[in-house]
Design a protein around this nucleic acid. Sequence first.
RNA 1: GCGCCCGUAGCUCAGCUGGAUAGAGUACUGCCCUCCGAAGGCAGGGGUCACAAGUUCGAAUCCUGUCGGGCGCGCCA
Length: 589
Amino acid sequence: MKRLVANLVNDALASLPELKEAAADLSMESTVERTRDASHGHFSTNVAMRLAKAVRKSPRDIATSIIAALAENDSVEKVEIAGPGFINFYLSPAAFHAVIATILDQGENYGRQAAKSGPKILLEFISANPTGPLHVGHGRLAAYGATIGNLLEATGYPVSREYYVNDAGRQMDILGVSVWLRWQELQGSDVPFPQAGYRGDYIREIAAAIDTAGIANATSEAILDGLPADGVSNDAEEKDAREAYVEALAARAKELLGEENFDRIRQQSIDSILADIEDDLAGFGVKIDTWFSEQSLTRTGRIDDALAVLKERGILYEKDGATWFPATDYGDEKDRVVIRANGVKTYFASDIVYHFDKRERGFDHLIDILGADHHGYVSRVRAGLEAMGYKGDDLEVELVQFVALFRDGEKVAMTTRGGTFVTLRQLREEVGNDAARFYYVSRSNDQHLDFDLDIAKSQSNDNPVFYIQYAHARIASVFRQLADKSLAWDRTNGQDNMAELSESHEKTLMTSLSRYPEVIELSANNRAPQHLVHYLRDLANDFHSWYNAQFFIVDEANQRDARLTLCAATRTVIANGLTILGVSAPESM
RNA sequence: GCGCCCGUAGCUCAGCUGGAUAGAGUACUGCCCUCCGAAGGCAGGGGUCACAAGUUCGAAUCCUGUCGGGCGCGCCA
């Protein structure tokens, strides 16, 4: 609908030689906008004001000539100049009636754009290390990423959702040794658990369940012989001691068990945690197309190959026994190590190759959704892409800020180490999937999120998700009432009698329904699902107001069918919007 | 110290690519069920858009600075 007005203005400008040139670099779509106030019509453009300077004429004079040049259109009822030079468009009732017909014809496709052939988008999100269950912070990444994926798809882009599994490297050894030690405990070992090990209860559960056939118990003496002392606390100054100790333990585990057996324990642990994450996400309505394993990069030698290429091109250099990537040449703050002096490749090395691999797989545009604490890492990955021959701009990063939980007005304390962090699963069980999905995306992603458990749980008007779902359920209820009265909705008759919908609530509602495709596009383009959230809230409000103002199931058939037609269209749009948010649209509550 | 994000009603937050009188929810006050779900609706008060300069016909929005809050700055991930 917005495009219709924009096109009219565009054509008018093109037909005016004195304005054509000055308007050439204005994007017409951007100068036409919905009005905030109904007294300004339905759409407005400020193009006359923006051209005034270039053509040295008053905005109102320019507006007058634009209006004179506008082509006749049945959808446009009235055009007038207002204020300093706005051109306001009043669309005809028939234009809105046509939108209602479109909504009913298109159904779940209303607001969706035709599939585009490209750019092909790879959307990577969550990518939490497989060292434990997802927590509420990951929940925000999951909800945001899933919704962005839905929005991109709705706007026609081919999009693939990917989870990068950091299943290689040091952390996995620590995971393996943690599980092994818990298993040893179950066999009666009294080796104290390392400070830097994974201490959560889920480690014990994995230890109790894994297959250790053929793996012998080790004595405490054999495990601890010659090892350095563990850090005695979690304090920062003890950190080196803690990390050294747990690494030594992992090395010892490999000696005692043999690499193969240790691998078995480690891999089972990873598989178990990944299965849990997968199940958790599926329960949360989050679909992942590809689980991309970091091990697969290591195993196939692609990391070594890529580093060799960079070395050949003379990009990498050696210093202090390590191999460095000159990230500063690409605008990063400092150079970064890719191979440590001890021969271990850093995560950055695999990140370069991973992002290169995404492009090699044919994805044109890469979107990474990351926690805000990863922002320092963006410029170096872009640098890596450039060094590998692609553009840094191919990578778009959306940062998501932290989540704080509130209960009874108090912040819920969460520390990963202390084991008091709240898991996504706990949150889902407590507040429900719908409320959680909705709450997570109701704020701008670059805003810290205060997640109020009491509001999310409340089944009342305090909770916007219920308010919107209630509007949907209420419409379903109207149709049930209709059937109870042995009446039926005649859609054709309704559409033939749309002129019956002349009351202000009805006009407001129709205007809102016509906005939906624009809201989807705006939300998708700005990676900003909160626009859709606010829109749905407003739409539900428009419906509830109308519901309270008028009775729908009236005796007069033409009026009844017309009103039910509007109800049906509203139901469709609410359902479409909620679906994109990953929230259910219930028939009753 | 340097970099990124944020600062809008008592509270939680929207506000697009600069436009017309600054928006919701919540809380507070009062009203509306003989009627399709009151899990709803209507009305009211509540603001120096952190602060200061600047660009512009026009700034909550763009630029610069100051103050306040969060995060990041490893041969960790």
